Deep mutational scan, measured.
Amino acid sequence: DYEVGESVTVMDGPFATLPATISEVNAEQQKLKVLVSIFGRETPVELTFGQVSKI
């Protein structure tokens, strides 16, 4: 299970290999909103559970 505030690594898509912090969890739809730090700015990205891995 994923929790808000948890650190994960993006495994898929254009942000693969980047660390991210979970900002929202939708367990019903198996989706997460995460904040990816790009060029010093936090960018919100919506991903599925399968696109991230716990650190």
Score class of each variant (00 low, 15 high):
D1S: 14
D1N: 13
D1H: 14
D1T: 14
D1R: 12
D1W: 14
Y2W: 13
Y2K: 01
Y2I: 03
Y2D: 01
Y2M: 05
E3Y: 14
E3M: 13
E3S: 12
E3H: 14
V4I: 11
V4M: 06
V4D: 03
V4H: 04
G5I: 01
E6S: 07
E6I: 06
E6D: 13
E6T: 07
S7L: 15
S7C: 13
S7E: 14
V8Y: 02
V8H: 01
V8Q: 01
V8A: 02
V8R: 01
T9P: 01
T9M: 15
T9D: 04
T9K: 09
V10L: 05
V10C: 04
M11G: 04
M11K: 10
M11C: 11
M11S: 08
D12V: 13
D12F: 13
G13A: 02
G13H: 04
G13R: 01
G13V: 02
P14F: 06
P14G: 04
P14K: 08
F15P: 00
F15A: 03
F15M: 05
F15T: 02
F15H: 06
F15I: 02
F15R: 02
F15V: 02
A16G: 05
A16C: 08
A16E: 07
T17N: 14
T17F: 12
T17H: 13
L18T: 04
L18C: 11
L18Y: 14
L18F: 14
L18P: 00
L18Q: 08
P19C: 14
P19S: 13
P19L: 14
P19A: 11
A20E: 01
A20T: 02
A20I: 02
T21H: 06
T21G: 02
T21F: 09
T21K: 12
T21Y: 09
I22G: 00
I22M: 01
I22A: 02
S23Y: 15
S23T: 15
S23P: 01
E24P: 00
E24T: 06
E24N: 06
V25Y: 04
V25T: 04
V25E: 01
V25D: 00
N26G: 04
N26M: 11
N26Q: 08
N26T: 05
A27K: 14
A27G: 09
A27Y: 15
E28A: 13
E28D: 12
Q29R: 10
Q29E: 14
Q30C: 10
Q30S: 09
Q30K: 14
Q30L: 09
Q30N: 09
Q30V: 04
K31G: 05
K31Y: 09
K31F: 08
K31D: 02
K31T: 14
K31N: 06
L32T: 01
L32C: 05
L32Q: 00
L32A: 02
L32R: 00
K33M: 10
K33D: 03
K33C: 09
K33Y: 07
V34C: 09
V34R: 00
L35Q: 06
L35M: 11
L35N: 08
L35K: 07
L35C: 09
L35P: 01
V36D: 01
V36G: 02
V36K: 00
V36W: 00
V36M: 05
S37V: 15
I38W: 12
I38C: 10
I38G: 08
I38V: 10
F39E: 15
F39L: 13
G40E: 06
G40W: 04
G40V: 03
G40H: 04
G40N: 07
G40L: 04
R41E: 14
R41L: 14
R41C: 14
R41H: 13
E42R: 05
E42M: 12
E42L: 14
T43N: 07
T43H: 12
P44Y: 15
P44Q: 15
P44D: 11
V45I: 14
V45M: 09
V45S: 04
V45E: 04
V45H: 05
E46R: 04
E46S: 06
E46C: 09
E46D: 09
L47G: 00
L47R: 01
L47N: 00
T48D: 13
T48K: 10
T48Y: 11
T48R: 08
F49L: 04
F49A: 03
F49K: 02
F49M: 07
G50Q: 12
G50V: 09
G50E: 14
G50K: 10
G50F: 09
Q51D: 06
Q51M: 07
Q51W: 04
Q51F: 03
V52R: 00
V52A: 04
S53H: 09
S53L: 08
S53F: 05
S53D: 07
S53W: 04
K54C: 04
K54P: 07
K54H: 07
I55C: 10
I55K: 11
I55G: 10
